[in-house]
Simulated scan of single mutants.
Amino acid sequence: MAAGGFCKLPNGSVVVALNLPSPAADSPGSVRVLVHAQNRARALTRLRNLGLRAVYLRGNAAPPTPDEITAVLHHPDGLIWRTAPDNGVAAMELWRPIRSLLRQPTAPA
């Protein structure tokens, strides 16, 4: 079951955080995805448009931390990810753009 949550910002936009199973075949486990959008529905639509079809936000069990909010607000795409820690302790990994997670490996010609 994917944990997730959101935080409404003073300007009315939201940051949605979701822990999802990794869509990349070479990285098992889960990833933490952050999305900045005008509202929760648009945030989820952004993920669905990228191919993550079964993405839902139920509740607010794991809202984004202040550090996560800062990271996604400073990213030009407003859509980032990193490996989700298994033990609940914040990962020491850098945030990456979503296209690096969803990039399909090309077959050699």
Rank of each mutant, 00 (worst) to 15 (best):
H75Y: 06
L94D: 11
M1N: 04
V35W: 05
P97V: 11
M1Y: 03
A61I: 08
V35T: 14
P21S: 07
P97Q: 05
R48Y: 06
A107Y: 12
E93N: 02
Q38P: 02
G4A: 03
L9S: 03
Q38G: 15
G78K: 09
W95N: 05
T106A: 14
R32K: 13
A62R: 13
L94A: 13
G5I: 11
T65C: 01
A54C: 01
L50K: 14
H74K: 15
A90P: 02
D67Q: 14
P28N: 04
S100L: 12
R58E: 11
F6G: 00
I69Q: 10
R96Q: 15
S30G: 09
T70P: 01
L18Y: 02
L20F: 05
A109I: 08
S22W: 04
L18H: 00
R58V: 13
T65E: 11
L18Q: 02
A41E: 14
L47F: 12
G59H: 09
A54F: 02
L73M: 14
L57G: 09
S100E: 15
P63T: 04
P76Y: 02
L73R: 15
A84L: 00
K8E: 14
T70E: 12
D67S: 13
A37Q: 06
P63R: 02
R40I: 14
R58Q: 11
P28D: 03
A24C: 03
G4M: 03
P66K: 05
G5S: 09
L102R: 05
R96S: 11
L101V: 12
A17Y: 00
A90S: 12
A43D: 01
G78Q: 10
D26M: 02
V15P: 08
R42G: 15
W81D: 06
I80A: 04
L57I: 02
E93Y: 00
T45H: 09
N11I: 02
I98W: 07
H36N: 13
V35D: 04
H74G: 13
R46Y: 05
H75W: 07
H74A: 14
V33R: 06
L9Y: 06
V35M: 04
P10T: 08
L57F: 03
G51P: 03
H74F: 10
I80P: 03
R46E: 10
G29M: 06
A3I: 00
A25Q: 10
A41R: 12
L101S: 07
A71T: 15
H75M: 03
V16Q: 02
L57Q: 07
D77P: 01
S27G: 00
A71G: 05
A84S: 11
T106E: 10
V89F: 08
L94R: 08
L101M: 13
H75G: 01
G29I: 09
V33C: 06
S13L: 01
A24P: 00
C7N: 02
L94I: 00
R58M: 06
L73C: 13
A2N: 14
G5E: 06
A61K: 09
R82C: 11
R103W: 03
A54T: 12
R58N: 08
G4Q: 02
I69Y: 04
R40L: 11
A17Q: 11
N49R: 15
T45D: 14
P105M: 08
A43L: 03
S30W: 08
R99Q: 12
P10D: 10
N19R: 15
L73I: 10
E68H: 08
E68R: 09
A17M: 00
R99H: 14
V14D: 01
A25M: 07
A2H: 10
P10G: 03
